[in-house]
Amino acid sequence: MDKQNWEPKIVAFVCNWCTYTGADLAGTSRLKYPANCKLIRVMCSGSIDPVFILKAFERGADGVLVSGCHPNDCHYNAGNFHARRRWDFFHKLLDFIGIEKGRLQFSWISASEGKKFADVITKVTEDIKAMGQFTSYKKMNSEFTVDFPADLAELEEPVLQESFDKETVK
């Protein structure tokens, strides 16, 4: 892919009670924001394990956004306070081992802040676009890989889709 057409892949872990609802509001308000973020809804920002983020980078994410309720607004009272300390460490650790600070971003977005949601997504996307593709993991990921022969490449239907279809038919 050439540099100009490249679009960053961003994974956003968002809390069910505030940021996800904020995203809903952004949608119903018909606000425009870039479509690079793949939202993953979790119950609380405190329930996001750092391995989720590491896995996202492993699997080719160029950036990760973590977002939850504002301090004192947590549905579970203290989830985001615990998370805040954890992220302080994790982002320092990632910085030390060589993943730039901007690759992993954090925000507090409440359910009523649809506008802020659109702004944050726009800003994160622009930031990561400016940083360019995250290539550090490439070398590790190329270990023990194989190019599947062409005759195999035709079979591309995801298996999961099938079981999903069956269930909905029932």
């Binding site: 301090p71 306070f81 805040r84 302080d88 971003q105 954090f106 507090w108 944050v120």
Partner: peptide, 9 residues
């Protein structure tokens, strides 16, 4: 509650 909040947008 007064922990550093700089990291968050």
């Amino acid at each position: 509650e007064k922990d550093n909040d700089e990291l968050f947008m």
